[in-house]
């Protein structure tokens, strides 16, 4: 886009300059030796008009150049803001909250993550979010479903206390049914004891 605009601009400049050149050449045509005052006046007027036209054209060109630049800057700023918003949204979605085994209380790390999430939610009051509570494979299915619910609820409580509108938030528990990673060791379990976020619909 930017390159295209530059080429157009250069072409326009060349056009204007060549026109100006033609005009100035015309000015230099040999004058008849004897000219009447009337003729001289007429010539002067024509020259004036040409000069004015030239100035006007230059002005127009300049004005055009400025508006192009403004547009560029605005577009860049918009793109940047969009990118930042998308990044913030991505971060909001991708950042998970992790828990200790058989525990629904929030760790210091979890609180940090949730503070960022609360900020995003406050800035995006139209966003409708589902908080998913998950457990690792240890323990029993039914209790883990309830524990997953407890985890999602404690996340919700924290966000509401941090100023998020409760109507933006719903909770769901998947217990141990949807592990994030496979594996039967502490590393896998730690990644599976989590709360995740997704948008409604």
């Amino acid at each position: 886009m930017i390159k295209k605009f530059n080429i157009k601009f250069i072409l326009a400049c060349i056009l204007v300059l060549s026109f100006a050149f033609v005009v100035s050449c015309a000015k230099k045509t040999p004058e008849p030796q004897a000219t009447s005052a009337e003729q001289q006046t007429e010539m002067a007027e024509k020259e004036k008009a040409a000069e004015a036209e030239k100035k006007q054209r230059q002005l127009e060109e300049q004005e055009e150049e400025i508006s192009e630049q403004e547009l560029e800057a605005r577009k860049k700023a918009e793109a940047k803001a969009k990118k930042e918003a998308a990044e913030a949204k991505d971060q909001f979605l991708s950042e998970k909250v992790y828990f200790e085994f058989d525990d629904s209380s929030l760790t210091a790390e979890a609180r940090d993550v949730l503070r960022r999430k609360a900020e995003w939610l406050r800035n995006n009051p139209e966003a409708c979010v589902i908080i998913e509570g998950h457990c690792d494979e240890r323990g029993t299915d039914e209790y883990n479903l309830a524990l997953g619910s407890r985890r999602a609820e404690s996340v919700k409580e924290f966000l509401v206390k941090a100023g998020v509108n409760a109507s933006q938030l719903t909770t769901i528990s998947y217990g141990e049914e949807k592990p994030a990673v496979k594996g039967h060791n502490e590393e896998a379990w730690a990644k599976n004891r989590r709360a995740e976020f997704r948008f409604c619909n």
């Binding site: 039914e142 309830a146 609820e153 409580e157 909770t171 528990s173």
Partner: peptide
């Protein structure tokens, strides 16, 4: 919220189950 662990109550037509609609299981 959750609607889990249904269990029929002996001598009754009703069931007991865990629900969390009040924010607690």
């Amino acid at each position: 919220g959750i609607n889990i662990t249904p269990q029929w109550v002996p001598g009754s037509s009703g069931l007991a189950a865990t629900l969390s609609f009040e924010g607690d299981e």
